[in-house]
Amino acid sequence: MQKTFSNGPFIHRIIVATSILILAVIYFFDVKDLKNPHDRLLISPVFWIMVILYPIIIWQEIREAKKTIHDSEEVEGDGDSYRLTKKVGFFMISVMIYLILLNYIGFIISTILFLPALMWILGTKSRLFPIIFSIIATGLLYLFFDILLGIPLPIGILIEGVL
C-alpha cells in the first residue's frame, strides 16, 4: 500500500482539541469572576476534567500518527467525503452570503437567488430548471410559513425601508 500519511489530519485533530480547550479557557475565565460561586458549580469541575484530558488526547493523536507512518496505512476518517472540496467550499460561502442577503433584501428575493446558485454549484447542468424550481419552491415556502402557519419571514432591512 502506498504511504499516504501527511501532517494534514494530525494537525487538524490537534487544532480541534486545542480550539475546544481555548474556548473552554475563555469561558472559564468569563465565569471565574462571577460573585456567586453557585453559578460555576458544574462549570469548574467540567473545565478541569477537560484540562486533564487535553494532554491525553494530544498523546493519543501523536501515537496514532506515528502508528500510521509505521504501518503505512491510509488515515481513517479522512476519506474523500470529509475533504473540503471546491464544491463544499463554495456551498459554505453561498450559505454565508444567503444569510447576509436574507437580512438585507428579505426571504423572497434572496431565496430566489440562492436556490439556483446552489443548484449550479452542486452540479445541476440545466440553466432553466433551477430558476423555475427556485421560484416555485420560494412561493411554496412562503405560503407554508407566512400564510399557513402565520410565521412572518424576513422582509429585509432594505425592502422594509422602501415599503
Binding site: A17, V46, Q60
Partner: peptide, 30 residues
C-alpha cells in the same frame, strides 16, 4: 474513542450552560 467522546461531551456541557443563570448572572454571552 472513549477520551474524545468524553472531551466532546464536556464541551457540549459547557456550551449548554451559556446564558443567564437562575441567580441572574451572565455566563459566556459576551
Amino acid at each position: 474513542g472513549f477520551i474524545k467522546s468524553i472531551y466532546g461531551g464536556l464541551f457540549g456541557i459547557l456550551l449548554g450552560t451559556v446564558g443567564m443563570t437562575s441567580t441572574g448572572a451572565m455566563r459566556g454571552t459576551f
